[in-house]
Amino acid sequence: MKKYWSYNLKYLFILLTVWFSVSFGAGILWVEELNKIRLGGFKLGFWFAHQGSIYVFVVLIFIYVWLMNRLDKKFNVDEN
């Protein structure tokens, strides 16, 4: 059971690092540097602030759901 929780914390740490990097990182702190790169009609930093981070957020939640459902089964704590 301790292991279940430490896996959970590990997943949270990784996912929240990505969460932080795309929004606070790419969208705010590194925006000037990234703006030198272009993605079609977008400057990359601007794209992260106005579009990209939102897409990543959605993907993150679904990865979390998938990881946790797998973990629940592995430790036999899923509800059924």
Binding site: V31, F57, M68
Partner: peptide, 28 residues
Amino acid sequence: ISFMGYDGGIYLMGWTGGYVLLALLLAP
């Protein structure tokens, strides 16, 4: 956002990024 340009990203990221926190840290 139309008048703020890039700065409008605070609303876009702020009001959606909260759901990641909600899903990972609170809701379950």
